[in-house]
Design a protein around this nucleic acid. Structure first.
Lengths: 337, 337
DNA sequence: TTGAAAGCGCTAACAC
DNA sequence: GTGTTAGCGCTTTCAA
């Protein structure tokens, strides 16, 4: 039989209430009693039953994260950031992998509804805005990473898509490129649109005409980038550079170039987004926009925990973190046209 | 105020017990009552309180995993395997990142002791065998991936280190190499020893003398491989091939070769272990031993869940999964000495 | 500063 | 097939 709080209390010659106070660091206990109880706890190897504590106190000290794929370093690094902040603030973390499906994402939200977690971080959720609003309106605490949510109750953290895309495409233009393709993420998503906006701004700065036939979309996965690149190259409009909405899809672009004997960067300059670990190791090393993933994770976790602690929003609820362009070999080749 | 089982019961005109039966799929309920209750549950958006259920039933339907670093694909793929099996069997998963420290690993074990999880999977734990035995002896359910544990109560899953190392080094010998270095993992670990054993067996098969100065150790991280490779190359004993205990360390080996203008595979053949995703993308693509990570994760999760369900061991408690050598460019160069 | 006692929301034994 | 009721192990008033 497991040992419980009454057992400790009896052995220590105090009441369960006192043991509870010791466990929860109440200052209503004498230093002496505290030491005695602590000693007994140690001796008996007592471990407070989590479920009982949670039921009584109505909090779990646990936060959840739902990511589309834990294997993708963009997500696992965000998780690292959340995990470290959570750990520092004594929160536990439940990590959920939605396998890139809305179905699993929805199912994992049950953890919030059945109070397994006190709050949930959604990273690049598939769910639409309205469903997210509804959750917040019902009093569930959620935070979102990588997407804009216009709801007072939902803190968000993302990077400035327009800005860094502008910078990235600008870099390509400065290398002399005049026909630059773009592969976005999901075609209906805000961030794809924003990245396209940055792309167009850069073209405009350099008075380069916009060519719709150089625009395509993928699904943020390698295969999606592969397919989009093939479509672009088959479409007939020539281009010498490409800006890809994430590094995963850039991997697919690399594969197409290899298969078609297109040299990077001589024949085709490539820039990705995310600074996934792998981008540094591929051949040639991929220029990319560094998304401060760890920082975004830590920040959203901190805000959510603050919210649970002080129960009200600070002056700000949406956080934009700065991203840097990292120029590597894949875009480092001066053209003279 | 949140709605609870009595509220549902009242509205449905039944007792809480009946609602509970419906929720838990008991067959002691009329199809009609069931439908009615289910409708009310839906209508009221009732979500059973997890902690209450756990406290009463003394099980959480949750398993935990502790990995050294969630960012390393070897671990995140094992997690994927566990997660999918858990999901299929209606278990939730708590993922813990020990940050490569024994301290955090130990702390996360608290989740098992305080009954937050019903079982815990330890992937490449830092803890020594005795502590693991002690946990099992106290009745905690644990499973271990990537290490041999000689305890009846602890199921394990790993690959055959001796065998695949034998195969890998054999491949190197068949390419004509006669001086082959080896970088192991932690010098005191069983798997490092087993891999060394396979290495030696292969040498013996080909009557190649063993040279202790060609053996070094790292810590399974890139930097460890980098340092070990530098030491080996500075030691004075020449070698034309190297077998590295994991792909992460092989990345460090690649870096040394780059810095010293040693060409892979012409001047130096390299074989890693794990078949991390990155190994396929680096230049040149790395030959490696494919560890069936997903399968190992799924298997240990299945065994653990079986154990909780039927409460006794099957005929077998330690599982060895087969690993294949994947030959890529880094070792594909025929020597003529 | 400490103790007694109520109750968090659910399940399961028992009664009907 | 359904209802009544006790109690899982803890925290937190309230009283002393």
């Amino acid at each position: 039989m497991d040992i419980k709080i009454v057992d400790v209390a009896k052995r220590a010659g105090v009441s369960p209430a006192t043991v509870s106070r010791v466990l929860n660091d109440s200052n209503l206990v004498t230093e002496k009693t505290k030491r005695k109880v602590l000693a007994i706890i140690e001796e008996m190897e007592y471990h407070p039953h989590a479920a009982a504590k949670q039921l009584r106190s109505q909090r779990t000290m646990t936060i959840g994260v739902i990511v589309p794929d834990i294997n993708v370093s963009y997500f696992s690094e965000i998780i690292k950031g959340i995990e470290n902040m959570a750990y520092a603030k004594k929160y536990k973390l439940i990590i959920c992998d939605s396998d890139n499906t809305l179905e699993k994402e929805t199912e994992y939200l049950e953890l919030l509804k059945n109070r397994t977690v006190d709050a949930m971080v959604l990273v690049m959720p598939f769910m639409n805005d309205e469903e997210l609003y509804e959750l917040a309106d019902k009093g569930f605490l959620i935070g979102v990473v990588g997407r804009n949510i216009s709801h007072d109750g939902i803190p968000t953290c993302k990077t400035d898509n327009v800005k860094f895309s502008h910078v990235a495409v600008n870099h390509l233009l400065e290398q002399g490129h005049r026909s630059i393709a773009y592969i976005g993420g999901y075609s209906d998503s805000a961030e794809s649109y924003e990245r396209l906006e940055g792309y167009m701004k850069a073209l405009k700065d350099h008075q380069v005409p916009f060519q719709p036939s150089l625009i395509d979309n993928g699904d943020y996965q390698e295969m999606g980038g592969y397919n989009a690149m093939n479509r672009l190259m088959d479409s007939g409009t020539p281009f010498s550079a490409i800006y890809v909405a994430n590094d995963e899809m850039a991997l697919g672009v690399y594969r197409v170039c290899l298969e078609r004997n297109v040299r990077i960067p001589e024949d085709m300059a490539v820039i990705g987004v995310d600074n996934n670990r792998i981008s540094r190791y591929i051949n040639p090393p991929l220029s990319t926009v560094n998304q401060p993933k760890y920082a975004m994770g830590a920040l959203i976790a901190e805000k959510l925990i603050d919210l649970m602690t002080i129960k009200e929003f600070a002056e700000k609820k949406d956080w934009i973190i700065h991203s840097d362009l990292i120029v590597r070999e894949s875009s480092n080749y001066q053209r003279n046209e």
